[in-house]
């Protein structure tokens, strides 16, 4: 009797492991960030791009509506791909777009913008990459949709924007 119980429990446990591993295969290894704690401390200073002035990020966020924060760099190839989406969003005139220029050279950044257009309302610099870590960024490009009033991140987009994320932003802005 007890032998049967042993057998059954071992078989059940093995089956359980089997299905877990089978499901595990579907999961990707690439970290898809669930926003853990979506409040970011916006109370830090950063230097504007193309000027020596410094500003608190807080001051860049209006008191209502949403803002888009986009981390970019001139040396980042996917940033070129997503640039059209940003220009498109700008033309909607529904939200302010704040650029964070990540570990970049000012000259190159300037050239990048004059070549492709400037969608940003404001651009601040992040020469050491530490401001981006405050947002929980992994690298470039990344984009965050922020609720100005509550100062919470509504949505994170890791990697370049695409049709899907663009539609999502439009949807959330409306």
């Amino acid at each position: 009797m007890s032998k049967n119980i042993k057998l059954i429990s071992i078989v059940l446990f093995t089956l359980f492991s089997f299905f877990i591993l089978l499901k595990g295969l579907d999961k990707s290894n690439i970290y898809s960030p669930e926003i853990k704690e979506n409040n970011v401390n916006f109370n830090f200073k950063a230097k504007y791009l193309f000027s020596e002035e410094e500003v608190f990020i807080n001051e860049l966020l209006n008191n209502e509506g949403v803002s888009l924060i986009n981390i970019w760099a001139s040396w980042c190839l996917p940033c070129r791909d997503e640039h059209a989406y940003l220009l498109n969003l700008k033309s909607l005139n529904k939200l302010s777009i704040i650029g964070i220029n990540y570990k970049d050279d000012e000259k190159n950044a300037k050239q990048f913008l004059s070549e492709l257009g400037n969608p940003y309302t404001n651009i601040i610099t992040d020469p050491k990459g530490i401001n981006s870590i405050e947002f929980g960024a992994f690298g470039v490009p990344e984009t965050y949709l922020i609720d100005n009033k509550s100062k919470l991140i509504i949505q994170k987009f890791i990697g370049p924007l695409d049709d899907k994320s663009f539609a999502k932003i439009i949807n959330l802005v409306q």
Partner: peptide, 30 residues
């Protein structure tokens, strides 16, 4: 399925095959 320094080329269908085969062997032995 794992995140490792040594990740080799992955292909999910291969994973499913080895997994099934592994568990067939384990069940036979049990």
């Amino acid at each position: 399925i794992l995140n490792s320094i040594h990740t080799f080329a992955n292909d999910p269908s291969r994973g499913v095959f080895i997994l099934c085969f592994l568990f067939v062997l384990i069940f036979i032995s049990i």
